[in-house]
Design a protein around this nucleic acid. Sequence first.
DNA 1: AACTCTTTGTGACATCAGTCACTGAGGCGG
DNA 2: CCGCCTCAGTGACTGATGTCACAAAGAGTT
Lengths: 218, 218
Amino acid sequence: MEKTDKDVVLRQFPHLEQALLDELLQQSNLKKVEAGDEVMRTGQYIKYTILLLSGLLKVYREDDEGNEFLIYYLEPGNACAMSMMCSARNEQSQIKAKAVTDAEVILVPSHLSELWLGKYKTWHSFVIASYRQRFEELLQTLDSIAFKALDERLLFYLRRHVKVSGNEVRLSHQQIADELNSSREVISRLLKKLEQTGALTLHRNYLEIHDLEREFGS
Amino acid sequence: MEKTDKDVVLRQFPHLEQALLDELLQQSNLKKVEAGDEVMRTGQYIKYTILLLSGLLKVYREDDEGNEFLIYYLEPGNACAMSMMCSARNEQSQIKAKAVTDAEVILVPSHLSELWLGKYKTWHSFVIASYRQRFEELLQTLDSIAFKALDERLLFYLRRHVKVSGNEVRLSHQQIADELNSSREVISRLLKKLEQTGALTLHRNYLEIHDLEREFGS
DNA sequence: AACTCTTTGTGACATCAGTCACTGAGGCGG
DNA sequence: CCGCCTCAGTGACTGATGTCACAAAGAGTT
């Protein structure tokens, strides 16, 4: 890696100890990906742990028929817990990660990641913390699917999207439908309802979010 | 703990190093619970990591209205990943664990569990492995809810149940419905359909499973 | 302007799942 | 045997969601 990248790494992962950062900089690959690129594909063998330096990634689950839905977002400073787990077991990825914006990732070869668990206390804490955080998000996602009707799931989805990318939601209805594993028409209707309550304004190719926190009565 | 318990512990957790087992035996509580007891309640503050010595536990997610559904089973030798995570952050439990059969658990106080992560390599590996395993099961559960209709979810549920407790599924339709967050009538109808295909036989208060692996065409 | 592509809106309809109301079957205690 | 309880079966209905068909609107291209 080059010198300028070094600063970026240091800024995003301040909790990692110096010796580890040095090794990270020497032994790992920095990779730039463009918006829309797939960082990880379903069925691929994962040989790296993925650390996100900049940009935004979406992590999906995908089934046999190509249906998908969003599990969570990864922001800079996050590690992809799934890649850690798959790479550790040398297993096929059961998920898919896609760059929402242009992004930079660090690919840490699995054997190093495993080695570091014993070698660097801060790495090991980081891995545990990542697992915990992702576990919780996964549980929340599970909740929303298991207990909530589609209208609430849509709210949950939009809130999460707003949290990572602001009040302009630059998605078509079709994209939203895909990520909720629903259909466009249904999403269109629900969005229209939300517009009527004043929660957002519909535009072509994007939504303008005003307020998603209110309770939207029947 | 007493001497006889010691053997049980050693047998269930052969991967843990001796020094750790010694400390485990000295500092932790062995607790016996009866079938039906709640080992962990939603909203409770978790101060222990739970290790299962014998018996079978069910781990549920529960929402505000008391709806619940099954996330996974814990078998002897397993740790409850949720309890690890909650106790680590001193957070309220977002889940519920119930004993299916009489069971014995070891309660490891959180501060010890955290301490051991640094102190014992085998503990730390064990914790990581537990997270990974649970993560995968959680993903499978998520899949079944997100992509599958109720009939397939029922199959998924029954298969899992058979795996941990054999071909006699001693559950009422109501109980199954609860764990799938559905309703009794619907489950009854689906079970009847499965009976007609020869997959199982219905009895009062239990099901006799013959073969759940076939594809059951429309 | 005419064309074309994508996105969004909308009504009609089908299906799955949940709910309600009721029946009947099995088991248990008096 | 009778009453009572839980569990299971069933038909009718409802509502949410998905599907189909088609219309309309926006935006870029020629």
